[in-house]
């Protein structure tokens, strides 16, 4: 067992972990942060994506011991304290960027990371930017729209880039 100190979604934790414990299993099983899920064994699907010290990583491909001294943000920690959704969460909802929702936490965390690096991504740039996250339901088109809309909101633009859809929110 190794002792780690880690800040997750704004809360400090001190825990003993086996070195082989993956960060995602630590989050899910020791902290109850089950919003982050596991979809594969080979770091292909990206469902487990969280931010480690501000950068998107696949938490199934990081050992929990490696997060010692670090800050982790999960899907459960991106909304504001008053319960308001992050613009990326809002955009996924508005653009119907999810169906079963299993890939969604990872997809949202990867998308935020992308927009942090590229505030105004083109359709192709979004597609490349989320290449590490598999979705089996949506065919990605509405995810792309959502990321573009959120990018606009996160950077103080109106949602001009994304195709607006429907009449009713």
């Amino acid at each position: 067992m190794s002792q780690i100190n880690v800040r997750v979604d704004g809360v400090d934790y001190t825990d003993d972990v086996e070195p082989r414990t993956l960060l995602v299993h630590y989050l899910r099983e020791q902290l109850g942060k089950v919003g982050t899920v596991v979809g594969c064994d080979t770091s292909n699907c990206g469902a487990c994506t969280v931010h480690l010290d501000g950068e998107a990583v696949k938490s199934c491909t990081v050992f929990a011991v490696q997060a010692d001294g670090s800050e982790v943000t999960t899907i459960e920690g991106i909304g504001s304290a008053d319960g308001a959704l992050h613009p990326m969460q809002k955009a996924f909802h508005e653009m119907h960027g999810l169906q079963c929702g299993f890939c969604t936490p990872g997809m949202i965390m990867a998308s935020i990371d992308l927009v942090n690096d590229n505030p105004d991504p083109s359709e192709d740039e979004v597609r490349e930017g989320i290449e590490g996250n598999l979705c089996r339901c949506t065919g990605y088109q509405n995810i792309v729209r959502a990321v573009q809309q959120a990018a606009a909101e996160m950077n103080g633009r109106t949602a001009g880039a994304a195709e607006t859809m429907g009449a009713q929110a």
């Binding site: 919003g35 909802h93 999810l98 929110a169």
Partner: peptide, 22 residues
């Protein structure tokens, strides 16, 4: 006929889900 946004999304986009493995 309306493009209602989904009720289901509220828990799915916030990670407040009940997958069996949870």
């Amino acid at each position: 006929g309306q493009a209602r946004r989904r009720k289901e999304d509220a828990r799915l986009i916030t990670g407040r889900t009940t997958w069996t493995d949870n």
